[in-house]
Amino acid sequence: MNIDTLLPMLLTVIAAATPLLLAAIGELVTEKSGVLNLGVEGMMLVGAVIAFAVTVGTGSAILGIIAAAFAGIALSLVFGLLTLTLMANQVATGLALTIFGIGVSSLIGSSYIGTPVEKLAVLHIPGLSDIPVLGPLLFGHDILVYASVAITVLVAWFLKSSRAGLILRAVGESDLSAHSIGYDVIKVRYLAVMFGGLCSGIAGAYLSLSYTPMWVEGMTAGRGWIALALVAFASWRPWRVLGGAYIFGGVTILQLYLQGAGGIGIPAQVMNMLPYLATIIVLTVISAGPWRGRLDAPACLGKPFRPAS
């Protein structure tokens, strides 16, 4: 395989990995604060339809993306209200949010079926984008691809080096101690949940504006669930989320290319299993290998905060 075939394949991988990365990195922050929001799929769908509707309505994709971010936040606030203020069970509320989001998105979207929209433009950087091979690979993407990587970098820095990130982690590890030294646990968790909603909304916008610029019902096709699994895959570490998204996207794309190359005598269903099996195997190797670290699941994940009063 030479560079001429490898390059477009890598570009396809980047496109496939971006929505997973966006949704997963948001969920990672949510989970780091100790909250498990299983409503990613629903928030992505609402983000997708709002991005599409606003872009078609205003002609501005940027407004569409912003609207999608707010739509994601709005849905996440419903989740926050239930789980943080009213202390409802997080797992069930997240699943209910997905059911709700699927319904809301198809209600809003019914009048947009069959409408095309301009694909999100590539940000052309004069000079850089024109470099052979590296140009298109590194500088030939739309704004959301850059955003996905930028958000990952920021989140990694935020969690590791910022004071606010430290507080967030403290809240996720031990809400009672964080509370007792004076941090507002609920407020921190609200912000983290909203960030997750924002990222899921943008991930949805990427689907309906760039990946497949259209609106059709249920267009996420389960990507929200994969994003959730990737957070666990990454052992709650931002860089590993990036790695996981690209491994999953990469194997998905690779098997399509292998099929296109004439197949290798393996049934197509087995080829389609590969991305799932690959993630399991890679995680097993990481977890079992000599470099295994301490498991980073936040200690309070999924548990409601009930301050003794």
């Binding site: 394949m9 496109a15 496939a16 990946y211 096709a221 998905t252 296109g260 269903q269 389609n272």
Partner: peptide, 22 residues
Amino acid sequence: VWINSWYDPGKEGDAAKALIDQ
């Protein structure tokens, strides 16, 4: 290219890319 689904816009598009690249 089989995608084992009737309906997954993203994957259908990816399959198209894979074919065009080949």
